[in-house]
Simulated assay, not measured.
Amino acid sequence: MHLSKHRGHRNQKYLTWLRGKNCVVSGKKAECAHHIRLGTNGGTSIKPSDYFCIPLLNEFHTTGSSALHIIGEETFLKLFGLSPKNLFITFLKEYLSENYDVLYMPGNKSPEEDISELISIIESKITRVAKSATKKASKPKMQGAPKVSITESNYYQIAKKLKNDRDKALRKQLKENSKDSTAPKKQFKGNEFYEKAKEEKRLKDREFRKKNKELAAKYKKEQSGKNKSLFKENEESKY
């Protein structure tokens, strides 16, 4: 079985154990476990199986001048004469022996077959707990609290009528002013009366929006108070 055919195994216990081994370059106690992508099931934005790792010092992983992440994985392996498949077999066998007292004896198999069998044995020893879908607790529904649209409120209707009346008055004023003006018909831009009316409308609209916002906030506050009161009554009626 080619290594690229393996699924992305995740085994945090194995990674922790591997970091406690000696660095494959220096022989000193390792500080990290590097996932080998070359020739495995790793790829762009795809993390290889946790079983395709080698222990390294940070110096040879990321920080040193000859670090794997600086000179590249292929160059690094050639520079230090490392055979990933042989290393995988060595560590997988040692992990089985130390953690499960299983002594694996390779036969006349290819490295890929040995790795596949070792992984299968390790995976068979793991008891995985299936993740249960946890449903988020829904907020309690307030029974009896009617949903009232803001457009149905008295505040909104009053504000709407006020705006319509002001717009009507401004249109009337603009029409009367345009009759008295000597400016050509339909030419409003630059007209003194038009510009004055336009500015008045802009200021009144801003005042209206402010007033409407205040009314809406007041309405929302009142509705919130009513809903809380209804909810409290419903809760008390249960007992």
Score class of each variant (00 low, 15 high):
residue 129 V to D: 13
residue 192 E to D: 12
residue 103 L to D: 13
residue 235 E to F: 10
residue 238 K to T: 01
residue 149 S to K: 13
residue 24 V to K: 00
residue 175 K to M: 12
residue 125 K to E: 15
residue 118 L to S: 00
residue 93 K to V: 11
residue 56 L to N: 04
residue 119 I to E: 04
residue 35 H to S: 07
residue 158 I to M: 07
residue 90 T to L: 14
residue 50 D to V: 04
residue 125 K to M: 15
residue 104 Y to M: 03
residue 138 S to P: 05
residue 6 H to Y: 13
residue 41 N to E: 08
residue 139 K to R: 15
residue 19 R to P: 09
residue 199 E to L: 11
residue 78 K to P: 10
residue 19 R to F: 07
residue 185 K to E: 15
residue 191 N to A: 12
residue 101 D to T: 08
residue 164 N to G: 04
residue 165 D to Y: 00
residue 141 K to H: 02
residue 11 N to I: 00
residue 112 E to N: 07
residue 175 K to I: 07
residue 77 L to A: 11
residue 175 K to T: 08
residue 172 K to V: 08
residue 49 S to L: 05
residue 147 K to G: 00
residue 148 V to C: 07
residue 129 V to P: 11
residue 115 I to C: 00
residue 188 F to A: 05
residue 30 A to H: 01
residue 40 T to Q: 01
residue 152 E to R: 08
residue 130 A to M: 09
residue 58 N to Y: 14
residue 33 A to V: 05
residue 219 Y to R: 11
residue 123 E to H: 09
residue 191 N to M: 13
residue 116 S to R: 08
residue 225 G to D: 04
residue 149 S to W: 05
residue 198 K to R: 11
residue 40 T to L: 04
residue 26 S to A: 15
residue 46 I to E: 15
residue 76 F to H: 09
residue 56 L to S: 08
residue 24 V to N: 01
residue 78 K to S: 13
residue 237 S to C: 02
residue 98 E to W: 03
residue 73 E to N: 02
residue 169 A to H: 09
residue 232 K to H: 10
residue 127 T to S: 15
residue 160 K to V: 03
residue 52 F to C: 04
residue 40 T to S: 09
residue 173 Q to G: 07
residue 239 Y to G: 08
residue 145 A to L: 11
residue 70 I to M: 07
residue 95 Y to T: 08
residue 226 K to M: 06
residue 77 L to V: 12
residue 64 G to N: 03
residue 235 E to I: 11
residue 8 G to R: 15
residue 1 M to D: 05
residue 227 N to M: 04
residue 137 A to N: 12
residue 50 D to P: 10
residue 173 Q to A: 14
residue 202 R to M: 05
residue 152 E to S: 10
residue 6 H to K: 08
residue 72 G to R: 09
residue 214 E to T: 15
residue 95 Y to N: 03
residue 156 Y to A: 01
residue 150 I to Y: 02
residue 151 T to C: 07
residue 92 L to W: 06
residue 80 F to Q: 02
residue 63 T to R: 11
residue 220 K to C: 04
residue 17 W to A: 00
residue 217 A to I: 09
residue 150 I to M: 03
residue 210 K to V: 11
residue 149 S to A: 14
residue 117 E to V: 02
residue 231 F to C: 02
residue 56 L to G: 06
residue 66 S to Q: 14
residue 137 A to M: 10
residue 85 K to F: 07
residue 133 A to D: 08
residue 227 N to A: 08
residue 64 G to L: 03
residue 115 I to N: 02
residue 100 Y to T: 09
residue 163 K to M: 06
residue 34 H to Q: 02
residue 107 G to A: 05
residue 82 L to T: 07
